[in-house]
Design a protein around this nucleic acid. Sequence first.
DNA 1: GCTATACCCGACCAAATCGGTCTACTTTCC
DNA 2: GGAAAGTAGACCGATTTGGTCGGGTATAGC
Lengths: 152, 152
Amino acid sequence: MRLTTKGRYAVTAMLDIALHRNRGPISVMDIAERQGISAAYLEQLLAKLKKGGLLVSVRGPGGGYQLDRALAEITVSSIITAVGDGVDATRCHGTGDCQDGDRCLTHELWSDLSGEIDGFLSGISLADLVGRKEVQHVASRQDQRLIHARHL
Amino acid sequence: MRLTTKGRYAVTAMLDIALHRNRGPISVMDIAERQGISAAYLEQLLAKLKKGGLLVSVRGPGGGYQLDRALAEITVSSIITAVGDGVDATRCHGTGDCQDGDRCLTHELWSDLSGEIDGFLSGISLADLVGRKEVQHVASRQDQRLIHARHL
DNA sequence: GCTATACCCGACCAAATCGGTCTACTTTCC
DNA sequence: GGAAAGTAGACCGATTTGGTCGGGTATAGC
Protein backbone atom coordinates (compact mmCIF):
# COMPACT_ATOMS: atom_id res chain seq x y z
CA MET A 1 0.00 0.00 0.00
CA ARG A 2 1.49 3.26 -1.07
CA LEU A 3 -0.20 6.41 0.08
CA THR A 4 2.44 9.09 0.36
CA THR A 5 2.42 12.86 0.24
CA LYS A 6 2.23 12.56 -3.52
CA GLY A 7 -1.30 11.25 -3.34
CA ARG A 8 -2.25 13.61 -0.55
CA TYR A 9 -0.88 16.64 -2.40
CA ALA A 10 -2.68 15.59 -5.55
CA VAL A 11 -6.03 15.32 -3.82
CA THR A 12 -5.43 18.60 -2.03
CA ALA A 13 -4.58 20.36 -5.28
CA MET A 14 -7.60 18.94 -7.08
CA LEU A 15 -9.84 20.03 -4.25
CA ASP A 16 -8.31 23.51 -4.31
CA ILE A 17 -9.03 23.80 -8.01
CA ALA A 18 -12.54 22.50 -7.44
CA LEU A 19 -13.20 25.06 -4.74
CA HIS A 20 -12.05 27.95 -6.92
CA ARG A 21 -13.46 26.64 -10.18
CA ASN A 22 -15.61 29.73 -10.78
CA ARG A 23 -12.54 31.95 -10.99
CA GLY A 24 -11.35 30.51 -14.29
CA PRO A 25 -7.99 28.75 -14.61
CA ILE A 26 -6.05 28.39 -11.36
CA SER A 27 -2.30 28.89 -11.52
CA VAL A 28 0.20 26.55 -9.93
CA MET A 29 1.47 29.43 -7.85
CA ASP A 30 -1.94 30.10 -6.33
CA ILE A 31 -2.43 26.50 -5.29
CA ALA A 32 1.10 26.22 -3.97
CA GLU A 33 0.72 29.30 -1.77
CA ARG A 34 -2.71 28.43 -0.47
CA GLN A 35 -1.87 24.83 0.30
CA GLY A 36 1.73 25.26 1.38
CA ILE A 37 3.17 22.96 -1.27
CA SER A 38 6.37 23.54 -3.24
CA ALA A 39 5.32 24.99 -6.60
CA ALA A 40 8.00 23.17 -8.58
CA TYR A 41 6.96 19.88 -7.07
CA LEU A 42 3.29 20.56 -7.54
CA GLU A 43 3.87 21.12 -11.25
CA GLN A 44 4.93 17.53 -11.65
CA LEU A 45 1.82 16.25 -9.96
CA LEU A 46 -0.49 18.47 -11.98
CA ALA A 47 1.21 17.28 -15.15
CA LYS A 48 0.36 13.70 -14.22
CA LEU A 49 -3.20 14.63 -13.42
CA LYS A 50 -3.45 16.29 -16.80
CA LYS A 51 -2.02 13.21 -18.50
CA GLY A 52 -4.57 11.19 -16.59
CA GLY A 53 -7.38 13.22 -18.08
CA LEU A 54 -8.48 14.85 -14.85
CA LEU A 55 -7.28 18.36 -15.67
CA VAL A 56 -6.83 20.64 -18.64
CA SER A 57 -4.33 23.47 -18.75
CA VAL A 58 -4.46 26.93 -20.25
CA ARG A 59 -1.12 28.44 -21.18
CA GLY A 60 -0.08 32.04 -21.17
CA PRO A 61 -0.98 34.92 -18.88
CA GLY A 62 -4.13 34.31 -16.92
CA GLY A 63 -3.72 30.63 -17.56
CA GLY A 64 -3.66 27.71 -15.18
CA TYR A 65 -5.47 24.46 -14.58
CA GLN A 66 -9.13 23.55 -14.72
CA LEU A 67 -11.06 20.38 -14.05
CA ASP A 68 -11.87 18.38 -17.13
CA ARG A 69 -14.91 16.61 -15.69
CA ALA A 70 -17.84 17.27 -13.45
CA LEU A 71 -17.08 17.35 -9.73
CA ALA A 72 -19.14 14.26 -9.08
CA GLU A 73 -17.20 12.27 -11.68
CA ILE A 74 -13.82 12.76 -10.09
CA THR A 75 -13.23 10.34 -7.24
CA VAL A 76 -10.43 10.45 -4.72
CA SER A 77 -9.41 7.01 -5.88
CA SER A 78 -8.94 8.18 -9.46
CA ILE A 79 -6.79 11.09 -8.33
CA ILE A 80 -4.49 8.91 -6.28
CA THR A 81 -4.19 6.37 -9.04
CA ALA A 82 -3.45 9.05 -11.65
CA VAL A 83 -0.50 10.31 -9.71
CA GLY A 84 0.98 6.85 -9.21
CA ASP A 85 0.24 6.21 -5.57
CA GLY A 86 -1.42 2.86 -6.05
CA VAL A 87 -4.09 1.65 -3.68
CA ASP A 88 -2.94 -1.94 -4.14
CA ALA A 89 -1.85 -3.57 -0.89
CA THR A 90 -0.62 -6.89 -2.27
CA ARG A 91 3.00 -7.57 -2.95
CA CYS A 92 2.31 -9.25 -6.27
CA HIS A 93 0.06 -6.43 -7.52
CA GLY A 94 -2.90 -8.72 -7.67
CA THR A 95 -1.38 -11.37 -9.90
CA GLY A 96 -1.21 -13.98 -7.14
CA ASP A 97 2.34 -15.19 -7.69
CA CYS A 98 3.69 -13.86 -4.44
CA GLN A 99 5.71 -16.96 -3.58
CA ASP A 100 7.42 -18.89 -6.40
CA GLY A 101 4.48 -18.73 -8.73
CA ASP A 102 1.90 -19.57 -6.09
CA ARG A 103 -0.10 -17.44 -3.71
CA CYS A 104 1.46 -16.56 -0.43
CA LEU A 105 -0.22 -17.28 2.87
CA THR A 106 -1.70 -13.83 3.19
CA HIS A 107 -2.53 -13.02 -0.41
CA GLU A 108 -6.26 -12.94 0.11
CA LEU A 109 -6.01 -10.74 3.15
CA TRP A 110 -4.19 -7.98 1.28
CA SER A 111 -6.34 -8.43 -1.72
CA ASP A 112 -9.44 -7.95 0.41
CA LEU A 113 -7.91 -4.92 2.07
CA SER A 114 -7.15 -3.35 -1.29
CA GLY A 115 -10.75 -3.81 -2.29
CA GLU A 116 -11.90 -2.25 0.93
CA ILE A 117 -9.74 0.83 0.54
CA ASP A 118 -10.54 1.27 -3.11
CA GLY A 119 -14.22 0.94 -2.38
CA PHE A 120 -13.99 3.64 0.22
CA LEU A 121 -12.00 6.08 -1.89
CA SER A 122 -14.04 5.42 -5.00
CA GLY A 123 -17.12 6.38 -3.09
CA ILE A 124 -15.85 9.88 -2.39
CA SER A 125 -15.91 12.48 -5.15
CA LEU A 126 -14.74 16.06 -5.28
CA ALA A 127 -18.40 17.04 -5.17
CA ASP A 128 -18.70 15.32 -1.79
CA LEU A 129 -15.60 17.03 -0.44
CA VAL A 130 -16.56 20.47 -1.72
CA GLY A 131 -19.87 20.10 0.06
CA ARG A 132 -18.34 19.41 3.44
CA LYS A 133 -18.66 22.18 5.98
CA GLU A 134 -15.22 21.61 7.44
CA VAL A 135 -13.63 21.83 4.00
CA GLN A 136 -15.41 25.10 3.20
CA HIS A 137 -14.29 26.49 6.52
CA VAL A 138 -10.63 25.65 5.95
CA ALA A 139 -10.86 26.95 2.40
CA SER A 140 -12.15 30.36 3.39
CA ARG A 141 -9.43 30.63 6.01
CA GLN A 142 -6.82 29.85 3.37
CA ASP A 143 -8.29 32.44 1.02
CA GLN A 144 -8.18 35.12 3.69
CA ARG A 145 -4.64 34.29 4.57
CA LEU A 146 -3.52 34.49 0.96
CA ILE A 147 -5.15 37.88 0.43
CA HIS A 148 -3.55 39.11 3.61
CA ALA A 149 -0.12 37.83 2.59
CA ARG A 150 -0.32 39.45 -0.82
CA HIS A 151 -1.12 42.83 0.65
CA LEU A 152 2.38 42.99 2.13
CA MET B 1 -0.34 5.25 5.10
CA ARG B 2 2.55 2.87 5.45
CA LEU B 3 1.94 -0.75 4.66
CA THR B 4 5.20 -2.21 3.48
CA THR B 5 6.71 -5.67 3.38
CA LYS B 6 7.50 -5.22 7.05
CA GLY B 7 3.85 -5.37 7.99
CA ARG B 8 3.10 -8.08 5.46
CA TYR B 9 6.00 -10.24 6.63
CA ALA B 10 4.96 -9.77 10.24
CA VAL B 11 1.41 -10.92 9.60
CA THR B 12 2.68 -13.82 7.52
CA ALA B 13 5.05 -14.91 10.28
CA MET B 14 2.40 -14.63 12.96
CA LEU B 15 0.02 -16.67 10.87
CA ASP B 16 2.70 -19.28 10.27
CA ILE B 17 3.27 -19.58 14.00
CA ALA B 18 -0.48 -19.77 14.57
CA LEU B 19 -0.88 -22.56 12.04
CA HIS B 20 1.88 -24.64 13.62
CA ARG B 21 1.09 -23.77 17.21
CA ASN B 22 0.56 -27.38 18.25
CA ARG B 23 4.16 -28.25 17.41
CA GLY B 24 5.65 -26.24 20.26
CA PRO B 25 7.99 -23.30 19.69
CA ILE B 26 8.60 -22.45 16.04
CA SER B 27 12.15 -21.47 15.05
CA VAL B 28 12.96 -18.47 12.92
CA MET B 29 14.57 -20.77 10.39
CA ASP B 30 11.39 -22.80 9.92
CA ILE B 31 9.28 -19.73 9.30
CA ALA B 32 11.88 -18.21 7.01
CA GLU B 33 12.06 -21.32 4.84
CA ARG B 34 8.33 -21.92 4.66
CA GLN B 35 7.47 -18.33 3.90
CA GLY B 36 10.46 -17.42 1.77
CA ILE B 37 11.59 -14.58 3.99
CA SER B 38 15.20 -13.77 4.88
CA ALA B 39 15.82 -15.27 8.31
CA ALA B 40 18.06 -12.41 9.43
CA TYR B 41 15.41 -9.88 8.53
CA LEU B 42 12.63 -11.92 10.05
CA GLU B 43 14.46 -11.95 13.37
CA GLN B 44 14.13 -8.20 13.64
CA LEU B 45 10.41 -8.36 13.06
CA LEU B 46 9.86 -11.16 15.55
CA ALA B 47 11.84 -9.22 18.12
CA LYS B 48 9.46 -6.31 17.70
CA LEU B 49 6.46 -8.58 17.96
CA LYS B 50 7.89 -9.98 21.15
CA LYS B 51 8.48 -6.50 22.52
CA GLY B 52 4.90 -5.72 21.59
CA GLY B 53 3.65 -8.57 23.72
CA LEU B 54 2.33 -10.70 20.87
CA LEU B 55 4.96 -13.41 21.07
CA VAL B 56 7.11 -15.13 23.66
CA SER B 57 10.42 -16.76 22.85
CA VAL B 58 12.06 -19.90 24.13
CA ARG B 59 15.83 -19.98 23.92
CA GLY B 60 18.13 -22.87 23.36
CA PRO B 61 17.77 -25.98 21.20
CA GLY B 62 14.19 -26.80 20.39
CA GLY B 63 13.32 -23.20 21.13
CA GLY B 64 11.56 -20.67 18.99
CA TYR B 65 8.56 -18.40 19.14
CA GLN B 66 5.05 -18.93 20.43
CA LEU B 67 1.94 -16.82 20.56
CA ASP B 68 1.39 -15.06 23.85
CA ARG B 69 -2.38 -14.72 23.48
CA ALA B 70 -5.37 -16.60 22.17
CA LEU B 71 -5.77 -16.63 18.40
CA ALA B 72 -8.94 -14.61 18.56
CA GLU B 73 -7.26 -11.87 20.56
CA ILE B 74 -4.55 -11.13 18.01
CA THR B 75 -5.80 -8.86 15.26
CA VAL B 76 -4.05 -8.06 12.02
CA SER B 77 -4.13 -4.43 13.01
CA SER B 78 -2.22 -5.07 16.23
CA ILE B 79 0.46 -7.02 14.35
CA ILE B 80 1.03 -4.28 11.83
CA THR B 81 1.14 -1.64 14.51
CA ALA B 82 3.62 -3.66 16.58
CA VAL B 83 6.23 -3.69 13.81
CA GLY B 84 5.87 0.01 13.15
CA ASP B 85 3.88 -0.01 9.93
CA GLY B 86 1.30 2.46 11.10
CA VAL B 87 -2.19 2.40 9.69
CA ASP B 88 -2.42 6.16 9.99
CA ALA B 89 -3.01 7.91 6.68
CA THR B 90 -2.81 11.52 7.86
CA ARG B 91 0.31 13.60 7.51
CA CYS B 92 0.03 15.02 11.00
CA HIS B 93 -0.52 11.62 12.65
CA GLY B 94 -3.95 12.61 13.80
CA THR B 95 -2.96 15.76 15.65
CA GLY B 96 -4.62 18.07 13.14
CA ASP B 97 -1.81 20.59 12.72
CA CYS B 98 -1.07 19.71 9.12
CA GLN B 99 -0.74 23.30 7.92
CA ASP B 100 0.84 25.89 10.21
CA GLY B 101 -0.98 24.71 13.29
CA ASP B 102 -4.32 24.35 11.57
CA ARG B 103 -5.97 21.50 9.74
CA CYS B 104 -5.25 21.11 6.07
CA LEU B 105 -8.00 20.89 3.49
CA THR B 106 -8.00 17.14 3.41
CA HIS B 107 -7.36 16.30 7.04
CA GLU B 108 -10.75 14.77 7.62
CA LEU B 109 -10.57 12.66 4.50
CA TRP B 110 -7.37 10.93 5.57
CA SER B 111 -8.56 10.68 9.10
CA ASP B 112 -11.72 8.93 7.91
CA LEU B 113 -9.69 6.65 5.69
CA SER B 114 -7.44 5.68 8.58
CA GLY B 115 -10.50 4.77 10.61
CA GLU B 116 -11.85 2.70 7.78
CA ILE B 117 -8.65 0.72 7.32
CA ASP B 118 -8.12 0.25 11.02
CA GLY B 119 -11.69 -0.92 11.44
CA PHE B 120 -11.21 -3.47 8.71
CA LEU B 121 -7.92 -4.82 10.01
CA SER B 122 -9.05 -4.79 13.62
CA GLY B 123 -11.95 -6.98 12.65
CA ILE B 124 -9.71 -9.76 11.41
CA SER B 125 -7.94 -11.97 13.95
CA LEU B 126 -5.51 -14.82 13.54
CA ALA B 127 -8.38 -17.14 14.45
CA ASP B 128 -10.27 -15.88 11.39
CA LEU B 129 -7.31 -16.36 9.11
CA VAL B 130 -6.46 -19.81 10.43
CA GLY B 131 -10.02 -20.85 9.73
CA ARG B 132 -9.95 -19.84 6.08
CA LYS B 133 -9.88 -22.68 3.58
CA GLU B 134 -7.52 -20.94 1.20
CA VAL B 135 -5.05 -20.30 4.02
CA GLN B 136 -5.12 -23.94 5.12
CA HIS B 137 -4.57 -25.01 1.56
CA VAL B 138 -1.53 -22.80 1.05
CA ALA B 139 -0.17 -23.85 4.44
CA SER B 140 -0.29 -27.56 3.67
CA ARG B 141 1.40 -26.94 0.34
CA GLN B 142 4.16 -25.05 2.14
CA ASP B 143 4.57 -27.85 4.68
CA GLN B 144 4.90 -30.45 1.96
CA ARG B 145 7.43 -28.40 0.08
CA LEU B 146 9.54 -27.92 3.20
CA ILE B 147 9.58 -31.65 4.01
CA HIS B 148 10.50 -32.37 0.43
CA ALA B 149 13.31 -29.81 0.43
CA ARG B 150 14.77 -31.16 3.65
CA HIS B 151 14.93 -34.69 2.29
CA LEU B 152 17.58 -33.56 -0.19
C1' DG C 1 6.42 41.88 -32.44
C1' DC C 2 7.83 42.26 -27.40
C1' DT C 3 7.30 40.86 -23.15
C1' DA C 4 5.42 39.10 -19.12
C1' DT C 5 2.97 35.20 -17.64
C1' DA C 6 2.44 30.61 -17.07
C1' DC C 7 2.62 25.82 -18.41
C1' DC C 8 6.13 22.03 -20.02
C1' DC C 9 9.87 18.91 -19.44
C1' DG C 10 13.83 16.60 -18.09
C1' DA C 11 18.00 16.36 -15.43
C1' DC C 12 19.55 16.40 -10.98
C1' DC C 13 19.91 15.95 -5.83
C1' DA C 14 19.81 15.08 -0.65
C1' DA C 15 17.61 12.56 2.63
C1' DA C 16 14.97 8.85 4.16
C1' DT C 17 13.45 4.27 3.94
C1' DC C 18 13.61 -0.57 2.75
C1' DG C 19 15.01 -5.02 2.62
C1' DG C 20 18.68 -7.38 3.98
C1' DT C 21 23.52 -8.93 5.65
C1' DC C 22 27.03 -9.67 8.96
C1' DT C 23 29.17 -10.06 13.32
C1' DA C 24 29.35 -10.86 17.83
C1' DC C 25 27.19 -12.03 21.55
C1' DT C 26 24.10 -14.84 25.39
C1' DT C 27 21.28 -18.47 26.87
C1' DT C 28 19.92 -23.20 27.16
C1' DC C 29 19.74 -28.14 26.34
C1' DC C 30 22.21 -32.47 25.78
C1' DG D 1 31.66 -28.32 26.52
C1' DG D 2 29.41 -27.78 22.29
C1' DA D 3 25.63 -27.17 19.40
C1' DA D 4 21.23 -24.92 18.85
C1' DA D 5 18.71 -21.06 19.17
C1' DG D 6 17.51 -16.29 20.31
C1' DT D 7 19.53 -11.08 21.01
C1' DA D 8 21.52 -6.95 19.62
C1' DG D 9 23.15 -3.71 16.70
C1' DA D 10 26.14 -1.89 13.18
C1' DC D 11 26.22 -1.65 8.46
C1' DC D 12 24.92 -1.58 3.41
C1' DG D 13 23.13 -1.07 -1.42
C1' DA D 14 19.13 0.13 -3.83
C1' DT D 15 15.09 2.60 -4.29
C1' DT D 16 11.86 6.14 -3.34
C1' DT D 17 10.60 10.73 -1.81
C1' DG D 18 10.21 15.23 -1.95
C1' DG D 19 12.12 18.77 -4.08
C1' DT D 20 15.25 22.05 -7.01
C1' DC D 21 16.98 24.00 -11.19
C1' DG D 22 17.21 25.46 -15.76
C1' DG D 23 15.77 25.76 -19.75
C1' DG D 24 12.19 25.43 -22.91
C1' DT D 25 7.31 26.79 -25.40
C1' DA D 26 2.77 28.82 -25.88
C1' DT D 27 -0.08 32.90 -25.52
C1' DA D 28 -2.46 37.21 -24.09
C1' DG D 29 -2.05 41.97 -24.14
C1' DC D 30 0.25 46.10 -25.15
